[in-house]
Write a protein that binds this DNA or RNA. Structure first.
Lengths: 355, 355
DNA sequence: CTGAAAGCGCTTACAG
DNA sequence: CTGAAAGCGCTTACAG
């Protein structure tokens, strides 16, 4: 049986209250006493029982992290960063993966975090204010990728990033560009919509049509990207460039193109999103999001709020919500280049491309 | 304030003991009573406090998952699978990432899991029996990728997989093959050694020398693979094929080769390890490990042992440890092919290659 | 600066 | 089948 606080108190010759104070570094403990307690605890290999602490203090020292899955690099990275920061602050992490809408619904109605966490980070899961409030139940919460007025949020400026990518392709001479976006857009999960807007605004400004047939939507996975590219290549006039909503999609699209005998970037330019480590090693041009920074900001907020909290659950101070926008940047590698020469006007198709 | 068991008891007109039994589906509760309790709990949105349960029952309903990082796909996948299985069994997961030796040492001496988890899964972290015992402190534990006599272990047959890859390259006509392994091999973390043995045994059987200069060791990341490939390409006589210890390494190696103007597989064949989803989309020939199966087996063992446990910490029944070997398979894609024709004997180099 | 004591919200023999 | 009561191992006013 592991040692308890009583064992330490007995060995140090003090009360359990003093042991508790001494070990947690609380004020009003004589240096000599603190020392004696520390030595006793050390001798006994004493580790406080987190359950007992949680029950007595009303705080769990755990923060919840909600992500869609960890199959996508950015989600795994968010979990990793939050976990690092939490650990440094002496907190544990409770990861929750909500891949399916069913999982989401069940999760929302089961009060999963009640009495389980002191605060939480919610990343890229399509939830509205009501959902987030239901999860948080008054505890500090920060979201990543969600736009919610009354909640702390961290967003990447993906609109600007995709706009830069679109300009890059136009500058290279492309006129047939398709955006392969992801489907999970909701009012609050703004990334998908913002990316699309970045794409369409640049095309419009350049005098290109921005009709729906320049946008395809699918899952943000390699499989999704491959499926979308397959569709596009069946069109009479496939695009010479695609911008995708994730590096994974970009890789899927590239593979399908290659399998069809197209060369990249000769026959098809491809742009990803995230700049995960692998992107560099496959030469992928991509819109870099600083996922590490986003996760760091969100985690720091939550950790600070939890630390500042007297008793969790009694509500967070009603300060105005913070909204942080993290810059994106276009990283040009070898998956984009000028389109192949167009030798003729093709079959009289007269869509209003730039000339 | 959330409802407590007392609120439910009052509303249902029974004692808290009965509420506790009814809600946990224990026997010896009258159906009508069970119903009444369920309705009361539902009405009050009652969720038991896990800390109070843990303290009273002596079990936490949490299982720990130790992985090196989640930057590598296989590690993230293991965490995801264990998490899924735990959730289904009504358990939470406590993830711990031990990237550095320093983190490992600190972690080992701080009794991190004491009173925190009911069981644990340890994956691919170089720990010996003593370390694992110190973490488990008598609780059920299963390891992935570690060979420990008295502990449940799941291993992939990577020796056979790499051997198959080596044979594949020999069959294609390669004679200069280098193995790019990872460095973290220890007596217990057997993957690195087994892979190397798979490589060397096939070369030896084919009458090739297996001297050290056919093996390079580095980090199992894209960066590591790139660094190793850079070194190899500086040699007077670079290999025509490399086998790596992870898909990430393979991608790094491929990129360096391409940057040097080499074509793949024309000038260089590359084999990875894992078959993560992206491998398919970059056309990587790779030794597939069924990571999902490995994680499932380990998680099932631990979850079952935890469920069977009366009071955690009172020691696991001394049954013989289970050792499961999961098959690997070679997936041939377009990163491997016959070597380019050798037009001359080069500069009199007389290493004993097959002719 | 320190201690005695109540209490956090459950579970579990024990008795009936 | 059910309840009263002890107890899990801490923290925290409160009193000194």
């Amino acid at each position: 049986m592991p040692a308890t606080i009583d064992d330490v108190a007995r060995l140090a010759g003090v009360s359990t209250a003093t042991v508790s104070r001494a070990l947690r570094g609380l004020p009003n403990v004589a240096p000599a006493t603190r020392d004696r307690v520390a030595r006793a605890a050390n001798l006994l290999d004493y580790v406080p029982d987190p359950a007992a602490s949680a029950l007595a203090a009303g705080r769990t020292n755990v923060i919840g992290v909600v992500v869609p899955t960890i199959g996508r690099w950015s989600h795994a990275r968010i979990l990793e960063v939050v976990s690092d920061i939490a650990t440094t602050a002496g907190l544990d992490v409770l990861p929750v993966m909500l891949a399916s809408p069913a999982a989401r619904d069940f999760f929302l109605t089961s009060h999963p975090f009640r009495r389980r966490v002191d605060g939480l980070v919610v990343a890229e899961v399509p939830l509205d204010v009501t959902d987030v409030a239901r999860l948080a139940e008054g505890r500090p919460v920060a979201t990543i990728g969600l736009e919610l007025d009354d909640v702390d949020t961290v967003l990447a400026d993906e609109q600007a990033g995709v706009a830069a990518a679109t300009r890059h392709l136009l500058d290279l001479g492309h006129t047939d560009i398709t955006f392969i976006g992801d489907t999970d857009s909701t009012a609050t999960l703004v990334g998908p919509r913002r990316r699309r807007e970045g794409f369409e605004s640049v095309l419009a400004a350049a005098g290109h049509p921005t009709s729906g047939d320049r946008v395809v939507e699918t899952q943000p996975t390699a499989t999704g990207g491959a499926a979308a590219m397959t569709l596009l290549l069946e069109q009479p006039r496939p695009p010479t460039a695609v911008i995708t909503a994730s590096d994974e999609m970009a890789l899927g699209a590239m593979e399908v193109a290659r399998a069809r005998g197209l060369s990249i970037p000769g026959d098809l330019s491809v742009v990803g999103l995230d700049d995960q480590p692998i992107a560099q090693y496959v030469g992928l041009t991509t819109v870099a999001r600083d996922v590490t920074r986003m996760a760091t900001v969100a985690a720091d907020w939550v950790v600070a709020a939890v630390a500042a909290m007297e008793t969790p659950g009694e509500g967070v101070a009603a300060v105005p919500a913070r909204h942080r926008m993290v810059r994106t940047s276009l990283v040009v590698r070898r998956s984009t280049g000028p389109p192949a020469m167009v030798v003729d006007d093709r079959d009289g198709d007269s869509r209003g491309d730039l000339d």
